[in-house]
Computed example of a mutant assay.
Amino acid sequence: MPMLGVPICVECGTRSNPCRCKIVGPTVGFLAFVVAAVVEWPVGALVYPFKHRKGRKIMGHPVSVVYPSVTNAIPI
């Protein structure tokens, strides 16, 4: 039986904190990305047949705006 848990993301080599590794920011960013994607991808898929550029922009929003904003807001 597979175990479901919270994914843990690690980003090393960053200069935003003294230990040069981020765990909390990327993990929370990934969870925010998933929540935004669940909402925005179906909406983008409905818009895409009528307005291609707008649909692509909606579907790309979680990866281009949500994830980086949340990840960079939390320095650890």
Rank of each mutant, 00 (worst) to 15 (best):
P68T: 09
A36Y: 15
P42R: 06
V63N: 05
A32Q: 02
I74M: 02
P49A: 01
V70I: 15
Y48M: 10
R20L: 11
L4C: 04
A37Y: 02
P42Y: 03
F30C: 07
T27V: 05
G5D: 04
H61I: 00
R20W: 10
P49G: 05
A36C: 11
F30P: 00
G55E: 10
I58R: 10
L31Y: 14
E40R: 01
P68R: 15
L4W: 14
P49N: 09
V66K: 06
P49R: 00
T27S: 13
M59Y: 03
V39S: 07
P68H: 14
P26D: 01
H52G: 04
P2K: 11
V70K: 03
L4T: 13
E11L: 05
S16M: 06
P68V: 06
V63L: 07
H52S: 10
C19V: 11
G13S: 06
G60F: 03
R15I: 07
V38F: 05
C21E: 08
R20F: 12
P18H: 12
K57H: 12
M59C: 07
G44N: 08
Y48A: 10
V6Y: 12
N72Q: 12
V65G: 01
C19L: 07
V63W: 15
K51N: 12
P26M: 05
G60W: 11
I76V: 06
G29Y: 03
M3W: 14
G5T: 15
P75E: 00
A36F: 15
A73F: 01
Y67Q: 08
H61A: 08
V39E: 15
V28M: 09
K51V: 11
V39Q: 10
M1N: 08
L46F: 04
G55C: 04
K22G: 00
V24P: 02
L4Q: 13
Y48H: 13
I8W: 08
Y67T: 08
V6T: 13
W41Y: 11
R56F: 12
P49W: 12
C19A: 07
V63M: 07
V39H: 05
E11H: 10
M3V: 14
F50C: 00
F33C: 01
M59P: 01
